[in-house]
Every structure is written in structure tokens, then in C-alpha cells.
Design a protein around this nucleic acid. Structure first.
Lengths: 331, 331
DNA sequence: CTGAAAGCGCTTACAG
DNA sequence: CTGAAAGCGCTTACAG
């Protein structure tokens, strides 16, 4: 490919001027010279090498995103929203999929540090994520989940406990007398929040409610396998609230296989609220996370990062559809 | 961050030696010196700057992926498989989501060229993708869809026409006498292949079959909206074969809203066959593309790229489940 | 307004 | 086996 020197040569000027033209500064260039440079660049199909640029400029114009599972539509939507936000600022989003593997996560972190991304948005799969590689490199990080106190990373989240409570409370309001919580792995941070929110809703119910917590990985396959087993029992619950939509889809599938009708025999509530949830069979009631807002705030916060971590809590919305017993299939 | 010079200084040697140590070559380093360098690097938490490395080495150790819609699980699975293949070779996968927008696709192409990715895997949203930016930069490209004759890009695909025929033929074998093709946008290349495959299956059927082609965008929302309208009519088809699983999910949802039971009232066949298809309600019969194999071949082919485009056709598999009338929900 | 030169942090022939 | 130096392709003070 043509370099700045090729362009300078053809235009009869210096590489400094070529740079001034392509960056609109920091020095002025006469209209005449500018035109010559542009013409030469056009002719040679010149594109400044972003690597060389980043090396001397000290900024790569890229933000890294690390997600646990890019095949999960929640992260797909998140990636898209972040890419929109990043591109609007002239940055490129680099997406790393840790594939629910801690080693893979570590590899991606190293790759991002080595490539000197300017900032990072992260959804870690670890209980206590280690942000030190980024902080040592001076790369600001925003996590999209709660972080430990004193952590160097910022965070943007909804109030999971509160949202989980709202979801369960809604099922209570339908009058269901036995409700299950299909939670993530028992010891995960997220599971604790869903558990506490669920318990609060049950506590506040006027009537006694039979409850049970079941755990599965955050995947349709695992959730379906667990549900298939547990919904077949005579004492199966009347309703289930799930920690993620992915798990809810697994429950919907399992219920169908068992001949249980949703919501008639089993009410189901999801959590995350991606666009796909509206097209489930039946349409899935869920808690919607404000993905566009999360993305916009994350990118904005990273752009203004001054070293001090910031923690923001955004609102969620209850999306009531057929699966919990609200509305009918026709609407 | 610490640089190679910092390490050299602390180890009492030169940057050349630091480089030799970290690259295991091209020159030998005495064990003693190596140990000193490693200790200094450890102490300073040194990580070679990948930008500088790429600039002088002429290789970025990164492959770019451009997909139309990262929220579509097919591309999610593809991205994951490619990342596996790339990481196994020590490369980083950069994922760009063109969000079904031609301008966005062009932006990503420029960003990849500017960053000098070593190679590119691309699923374009354009009828006649323009690979010139890559070829001018000497970056080999493999498209995961058929490409124009004489194109500089390689391609790896299944035989879509043949696969579409097999899917439709399977519905014919069930004895359904009216079958619809829910295809992508009428003029797209893909649509032509599905159309021809579908027509071939119908032609070969021993009995007359009533057919209709309906078009929608490749999204659940659009497919559901179309299906809601068209499945409500009295002359609705007995079976539908779709150009993508996404569209099939939309049909499943619409059928449910209309009170039609699948497969009893309407048989449905998808196309793509991601892991999610097994957990649809009901489980979706579909054509499975060999994603892991596609990814592995793509990365392999790019690694050996010698300039001449290569075109490979891989096998597909018919995945028969409940939605077409095969098997029962219990299995 | 413009050019020659130093520097970003690496790699790698070239000498020793 | 090791070091001093040139070069990858940019940007930006520094002089003019």
C-alpha cells in the first residue's frame, strides 16, 4: 500500500504536510498544497496506516468489549448497541467472546492490552474479575455488572435485586401459590441478587407461597435439561421466574415437550428482555434491561474517564406478555 | 507501561536481546541473559506493544470478521467458531457487525484495512460485494457465500440450492399438498438459490403441489409480521420452508398467535441449524450448516492464501425434529 | 505556510 | 552470544 511518503513525493511536498492535511491540523496548509496532496492520495489510494498513527499518536481509536457468550442474543444486542455508540465517536469496537471460559477471558484481556485499546467494556464470567492488567496499562474499564468495592473499574448496571423482586412480585400478583426460581449457578454473584430479590417478593406476599430454587447454567440446553426433569414431577410449581431469558427459553421448550401449556399450566418470566423475547412461543414476559442506554452511558463514561471509578444504576422495565398470564396471544 | 528499553536497561542488556528473548529468535540468547531479561520483564510487568511489533514485523496477527447481524445466533455461533480457530493459531479475531447497513459495512471494511488485519472473513449484505479495498491492500478475503465469477475473494459455502431442494423435498415426502417458501428479499442472491431449489423439489414431486413464495427480511419481527397476515387466510399452506431459522422462528410465533398448532396444522422447516433450533417450540427441523468446519476451513485457507481464490463447497445436514412432522415432542 | 528531524516501540540485518 | 543502528509509517514540536 501507498505510504505518506509516496503521497508527499507525488505531491511534491513533505510527509508532515500530508499529515496536516489528513488530520486537519495541527498546522494550516494552503489550499493549493492541500489540493495537490488530496489528488496524490486519491491517485495512490492512500489510507494512513492506523498502527503507525496509533503508535505515534498514543491512541488506537478502539474500544474492547468482552462478553461471556456472543451467541446469547443479549450480548449480541449489546455488542450492536456499543458498536453504534463507538462508531458515532469515530472508534472501532473490538469484540472478544470469552466463551464462558476463564482462560479464554484472560487471553482476550492480554490481547486487548497488547493492542492498547483505549478503553474496555466488560462482562466478566469471574466471580471477582481481575482488572489489574487494564489498570496497570492505564486502560479505563467499565463493567456491566456490580464490581467489588474498591475496584478500579467503573460499573453500569440495573439494580438486579430490585428487578428480580419486581418480576417475582408480578407472578405473586397473579395469585400463583407455588413459584420456582430458575437461577444461575448457585454461588455466582448474580445468583445471590436474584435470590434475595425473589425472597423479598415472597416475603411481602400476603399469602403463603411454596418456593424452590433450581440452578442451571445460562444456556437453553442446560435449563431445558433441568426443567425437563423437574417439571415432570407431580409437585411442579405453578410459575417460574428465571435469571435470564436464555434459561426461560429452555423452560418454554421443556414445558412444551412435557405437554404443559404456558401460561395455563405453567407461567414463565424471563430476565434481560432482548428483542427475541417478544417472538417466543408464547411471547415471553421479562425484565427489560435498557441496552441502548447502557451502551451509550458506557461509551460516554469511558470517553470522560478521569481515573476515578463511577458507578451508575439504570432503570429496567417489566415487559408483560403472554407467558406470565398477562394479555392473550392475540395481542 | 514498561517498554522494551526499560527491560533492557534493568537487565543490563539491549533491546535487541529483549526482542530475541520474547520471540525466541531469530538469534540465540545465553541462558543467563535470558533469565535476566525474563526477570526484569516480570518485575516491570512488560508486555510487548503489539502495534509497534506489527508495524515493524508487517503482520498484525489479527483476522477480521464482518457479519450482517451479530444478534442473529447463526452469526454468533460462527463468530465463536472463528475465534476458536483464530486463537488456536495465535491470532485475534476482530468482529465487525454491519447491522444490515451498507454504509456501516463500508466503514468496517475501511477500519479493517486501516488497521491492517492480515485477512478477512466476510458475509456481505451486498448483492455484489466490493472486495477491492482488501485486494488493493493485499489482504486475502474469504466470503461465506457465493461470489461473482472472477472475484478476487475465495469462498466457502454449502450448496444452498441443493440444500433448499432437500429441505423442500422432505416436506413433500410428508405428503403436504401445499407448501410455501418463506424466502429472503426477492432480489437477493440467496433468494434465487432457495427459489430454484424449492422449485426443483416441487417439480420432482409425483403429485401436484400448490406453492407460494412470500418474502421477508431475515428477522423474526418481519417474518412474524408477514406470516401473521398470510397464515390467517383460509387458503394458508399446509407447510412452510424458510430461508433462515430466524424467519422460521417468526413463523412459529405467528402460528401460535393464530392458534395454529405446529406441526399438526402447519409444518415448518428452518435453514441454518444453530444450536438454538433444537430448543424452539416445537423443536425446529432445519438444514444444518457445518459451522465449525466452515470456520476451520476459512482460517486454514486464509493462512495458506497464495493470492489465487479458492472455492470450497461443504456438506450440510438435514436435522429432522418435531416442527416438520417428524418425531414426537417427547424425543 | 512548509520542511527536516526526532520519536512512538518494536524487529532485524550488520558488525563485532 | 551481544550491541548499535536503521527502519516500519505515522505525528509533531522546532526552525525557517
Amino acid at each position: 500500500m501507498a505510504t505518506g511518503r509516496d503521497v508527499a513525493q507525488l505531491a511534491g511536498t513533505s510527509t508532515a504536510v500530508v499529515s496536516y492535511v489528513f488530520n486537519n491540523g495541527p498546522r494550516n496548509v494552503s489550499d493549493e498544497t492541500r489540493a495537490k496532496v488530496l489528488a496524490a492520495a486519491e491517485k495512490l489510494n492512500y489510507r494512513p496506516n492506523a498502527l503507525a498513527r496509533a503508535l505515534s499518536f498514543g491512541r488506537t481509536a478502539s474500544v474492547g468489549l468482552i462478553v461471556p457468550d456472543i451467541a446469547n442474543p443479549f450480548f449480541g444486542e449489546l455488542a450492536r448497541a456499543l458498536e453504534d455508540a463507538a462508531i458515532a465517536r469515530g472508534d472501532l469496537l473490538l469484540i472478544g467472546d470469552s466463551a464462558l471460559d476463564e482462560d479464554r477471558e484472560a487471553q482476550i484481556i492480554s490481547a486487548f492490552v497488547d493492542r492498547r485499546v483505549d478503553s474496555v467494556v466488560m462482562v466478566s464470567i469471574r466471580e471477582h474479575p481481575d482488572f489489574s492488567a487494564f489498570t496497570q496499562a492505564g486502560i479505563p474499564v467499565v463493567a456491566l455488572h456490580p464490581v467489588d468495592r474498591g475496584s478500579a473499574a467503573s460499573s453500569i448496571t440495573i439494580d438486579y435485586e430490585e428487578a428480580a423482586r419486581a418480576a417475582a412480585e408480578h407472578l405473586v400478583s397473579h395469585g400463583y401459590d407455588s413459584i420456582a426460581l430458575l437461577n444461575g449457578p448457585y454461588d455466582s454473584v448474580g445468583a445471590g441478587q436474584h435470590r434475595r430479590g425473589f425472597a423479598a417478593a415472597v416475603d411481602r406476599a400476603g399469602t403463603p407461597i411454596r418456593t424452590i430454587e433450581v440452578n442451571s447454567a445460562t444456556s437453553r440446553a442446560d435449563a431445558a435439561a433441568r426443567a425437563l426433569d423437574w417439571l415432570a414431577r407431580p409437585d411442579r410449581p405453578r410459575a417460574v421466574t428465571c435469571a435470564t431469558d436464555e434459561q426461560a427459553y429452555g423452560v418454554l421448550h421443556a414445558a412444551h415437550r412435557l405437554g404443559l401449556r404456558v401460561p395455563h399450566d405453567l407461567a414463565v418470566m424471563g430476565f434481560d428482555g432482548t428483542g427475541h423475547s417478544a417472538f417466543a412461543v408464547p411471547a415471553l414476559s421479562t425484565v427489560r434491561q435498557p441496552i441502548p442506554r447502557i451502551a451509550e452511558r458506557a461509551v460516554g463514561l469511558l470517553a470522560e474517564a478521569d481515573g476515578d471509578p463511577v458507578h451508575e444504576v439504570l432503570g429496567y422495565e417489566l415487559e408483560l406478555r403472554e407467558s406470565c398470564g398477562c394479555g392473550d396471544r392475540g395481542e
